[in-house]
């Protein structure tokens, strides 16, 4: 369970998130929707420890994440697929995957986890020795998600994984994601511009607007309610 309460973040004097609270139960996906600049990336970067909040708390299970370094937070089980995929393009596909769980003690399981990532995204296997800079946009997205999974996280933060993905591929990745979530009891925070596809896989949805939670509801209800959809999501 990932539980965010009262989170306020500012860049200099400018407030980017204001008293944001939400919780992501185990084995479920929460979609975070909102216009450009709403504060979605700020939210996940704060959870990861890359940005220090002004106040508020982020609990992963019983652990307080606020105040810890990004590397410590990663080691507590937060996987982060950053905006723009964030693969290390100077390294090979295999090296990128290995980076995912380098800190883990269990080396044998680490190998298993890498193997699972290849099974999850077979296109990566054929390109394992290739420099990541040569991957297509979709392959990069797969690599980034696969890499996050290698660490066997308990919470997964996905910042616009659909960026640059073809619709069909996106649907495929989303399907695999849903399967993983229930299988591994993951708490997933899914940030999406494409509200339609996000709502189709999410259990719960939160709409951010100018740094504030504007709406919070079950995903199916939001998707099914034309008035709400028009008002907040514009489709």
């Amino acid at each position: 369970m990932l539980e965010i309460s009262d989170l306020t973040v500012a860049y200099g004097g400018v407030i980017a998130l204001e008293n944001v609270s939400l919780s992501v139960p185990e084995g479920s996906i929460t979609a975070v929707l909102g216009a450009n600049g709403a504060g979605k990336t700020t939210l996940v970067r704060t959870i990861s420890g890359l940005i220090k909040p002004r106040h508020g708390s982020v609990m992963l299970g019983t652990q307080q994440l606020v105040g810890r370094s990004p590397e410590a937070i990663a080691r507590l089980g937060v996987g982060h697929v950053p905006e723009g995929h964030g693969i290390v393009s100077e390294l090979t596909v295999d090296e990128n995957l290995r980076l995912g769980g380098l800190w883990r003690r269990d080396r044998a399981d680490q190998r298993v986890a890498i193997e699972e990532a290849y099974e999850l995204f077979p296109p990566l296997r054929v390109r394992r020795a290739v420099h990541a800079s040569n991957l297509s946009g979709g392959e990069r997205q797969m690599l980034s998600i696969g890499r996050a999974m290698v660490a066997r996280p308990t919470a997964l933060l996905l910042d616009e994984p659909s960026l640059g993905l073809a619709g069909g591929l996106l649907a495929q990745i989303m399907q695999r994601l849903v399967a993983l979530v229930t299988e591994r009891k993951l708490s997933v925070l899914l940030i999406e511009q494409n509200a339609r596809s996000a709502l189709s896989v999410a259990d719960q949805a939160v709409v951010l607007s100018l740094g504030k939670v504007e709406l919070r509801d079950r995903a199916d209800r939001l998707a099914g309610d034309d008035a709400l959809r028009h008002a907040y999501l514009g489709f």
Binding site: S48, G49, L50, S69, P70, E71, I73, A74, R75, H80, P82, G86, I87, V88, S89, E90, L91, E95, R98, L99, G100, G101, L102, W103, R147, A151
Partner: peptide, 24 residues
């Protein structure tokens, strides 16, 4: 070595290395 991999990741992209748990 994995140490070398860590060092390269830290050099090439410190922020990504950190969110992957590497002590940059």
């Amino acid at each position: 070595t994995t140490l070398g991999l860590r060092m390269r990741a830290a050099a090439f992209n410190p922020e990504i290395a950190r969110i992957l748990g590497i002590r940059v």
